[in-house]
Design a binder for these strands. Structure first.
Lengths: 251, 251
DNA sequence: CGCCGATTTGAGAGCAGTCAAACTGAGTGG
DNA sequence: CCACTCAGTTTGACTGCTCTCAAATCGGCG
């Protein structure tokens, strides 16, 4: 029996529609084919590389990022367990951005053939995987809004709201708490501010009693307040069972 | 004979690989099925709507945007003729953002069945359409970087570099000049600054002799200087014939 | 000519950046 | 067991980019 490597992915997809046993089995099987591990701060994929395959994050925490010529870095997305991305990237000749493991991270690399197998296994699975890709795009758009139209305090609050929602969707929260193994410098690169200012902003969120962040453990102390501050509207995460009409029948 | 409505799309896709006659015919046919016109400042699609179909911009200029509860607006992407987006959006129940025509704009709405027909017509066309979607995602990522890690002057320079490249890829430039029918307020919402500051930033670009923007006509006076200032690297647009090995044979 | 949206300019306030230094805590070696 | 190191966090002081509020100017159009 293979370990439940695809557990997080399955939990995530079931936020769209319930899957059948054979669909879950296929995901488990494919997730166990090519598993690779990366140490903290090591690149999982680099800008300029020839793209190979899709990537499924199994454990850990990673970030998509770009670096400007003069060294400024922007984190474009956080990748958490259950995130399955770049299903069709092999159409491109060169990657235009990098992915780094922020803590020790394991990923499953999925070949084009296995991507095809997933997409063709059933209409429901194809729809669920398409939903997954559309949500990633929606998250990217929301980050654009975040950086363009929110100030530092709102931006940081928004990132915490989003991470908590996404981690909950894959079963990685405990009530209002979750593990967010990011340094302040990494958060700063995600939120588009300097590390010094990020620290001050974090202190302000703490001072207002909205969050607690001790070590790597984030606790949201006052969810409504944090959401109001962030102008957070979770609709863009599409976690409302959009595909419920395609739910697999009870076994 | 149908009008060459899909001309811009075809030119764009041929930046990936040359298409065959039957592929172009199919695109022309599908682009002529459901053509709709929208006046300046009218929404083509609204947040909250149930998504219907894919959208191909035929003429005009549009923008994807989101508005925060308190009215702040962020433009997430510009849509220009030849842009084909949201191929699979009908998987979602509700739109998470809006699209507005910025000037009088015509679009072709493409049903799910016709999307399927395009994707199944040939491997080459499927790959070209996939490339098109991947480039849109890359643009979205670059905007995230733009807003997060460039200052106002660099951001505006970057937007102009990108627009010129994209317009050139669909045959809508004349040397270093192109039509950019945007108000300063719209540019401000794209670049994430206030309209007053956008004006000052624009004056600075003019003062440095990098661009001329009179009425709606943008001329890049000093491309190298503008690119250096913007830290613009066009790799993310993937205009380098990534799919040349799949080129259709000469007729 | 007068209107109105769009652009431009001015002035002052405030948010965020930079440079620097102090502090903390975990891990290392003497 | 303690000194030491090093990455990460915190704080201070000052600078500067960008915002807001306001008013003036421009340009197309009825």
């Amino acid at each position: 029996m293979t370990a439940p490597l695809a557990e997080r992915l399955i939990r995530k997809l079931e936020n769209y529609s319930r899957l059948s046993g054979s669909e879950k089995d296929l995901l488990q099987h494919i997730a166990s084919q090519e598993v690779r591990s990366f140490g903290a701060r090591h690149d999982i994929a680099q800008e300029g590389d020839q793209p190979r395959s899709a990537t499924l994050v199994l454990t850990g925490f990673a970030a998509r990022y770009k670096i400007l010529e003069d060294g400024r870095r922007q984190i474009i997305a956080f990748l958490i367990p259950g995130d399955l991305c770049e299903l069709r990237i092999s159409v491109l000749r060169r990657r235009d951005h990098s992915i780094a493991a922020l803590v020790p991270t394991t990923v499953a690399q999925i070949s084009d053939e296995n991507v095809q197998r997933m997409m063709r296994h059933s209409t429901r699975l194809e729809r669920a995987l398409t939903w997954n890709a559309l949500v990633d795009e929606a998250i990217s758009r929301e980050w654009t809004v975040n950086l363009g139209r929110r100030d530092a305090l709102e931006r940081l609050a928004h990132v915490f709201c989003e991470l908590h929602c996404r981690l909950r969707a894959v079963g990685l929260t405990t009530g209002e708490a979750c593990e967010v193994p990011l340094t302040q410098a990494e958060l700063a690169d995600a939120v588009g501010v300097s590390d010094v200012h990020l620290n001050r902003t974090l202190m302000e969120l703490r001072g207002r009693g909205l969050i607690a962040l001790q070590g790597k453990s984030l606790t949201i102390r006052h969810m409504d307040g944090l959401r109001d501050l962030a102008l957070f509207n979770p609709e863009y995460l599409h976690l409302g069972q959009d595909g419920r009409e395609f739910d697999a029948p009870d076994p």
